[in-house]
Simulated assay, not measured.
Amino acid sequence: MTGEVENLMLEHLKRFQATLDRMDRRQEEIIGRLANLEGSLASMMGHLAHLAGADAAQQLAIDNVNRRLDRIERRLELSH
Rank of each mutant, 00 (worst) to 15 (best):
Ile30Gly: 02
Gly53Cys: 00
Leu8His: 14
Arg15Pro: 01
Met9Asn: 12
Leu51Glu: 03
Arg33Cys: 04
Leu37Ile: 12
Met23His: 13
Asn7Val: 00
Ile62Arg: 09
Leu20Trp: 01
Leu10Thr: 10
Asn66Glu: 13
Arg67Ala: 11
Thr2Val: 06
Ala18Val: 00
His50Ser: 09
Leu76Glu: 05
Thr2Asp: 15
Ser43Cys: 09
His50Arg: 10
Asp24Thr: 06
Glu38Thr: 02
Leu76Asn: 01
Ile31Phe: 01
Ser79Asp: 07
Leu69Gly: 00
Ser40Arg: 15
Leu48Asn: 03
Leu60Arg: 14
Glu28Ser: 03
Glu73His: 14
Ile72Ser: 02
Glu11Val: 05
Leu69Tyr: 04
Lys14Asp: 07
Ile31Pro: 00
Asn7Asp: 11
Asn7His: 08
Ala57Trp: 00
Val5Lys: 13
Leu8Ala: 15
Leu51Trp: 03
Leu37Tyr: 15
Arg74Ala: 04
Met23Leu: 13
Ala18Leu: 00
Leu41Ala: 11
Leu20Asp: 11
His47Phe: 07
Leu69Phe: 04
His12Cys: 06
Ser79Tyr: 05
Leu20Glu: 07
Arg26Ile: 02
Ser43His: 13
Gln17Glu: 14
Arg25His: 08
Gly46Thr: 02
Leu48Thr: 05
Glu6Gln: 10
Met45Cys: 12
Leu69Ser: 05
Asp63Ala: 03
Met45Tyr: 14
His47Thr: 09
Gly32Trp: 01
Leu69Ile: 02
Arg68Phe: 12
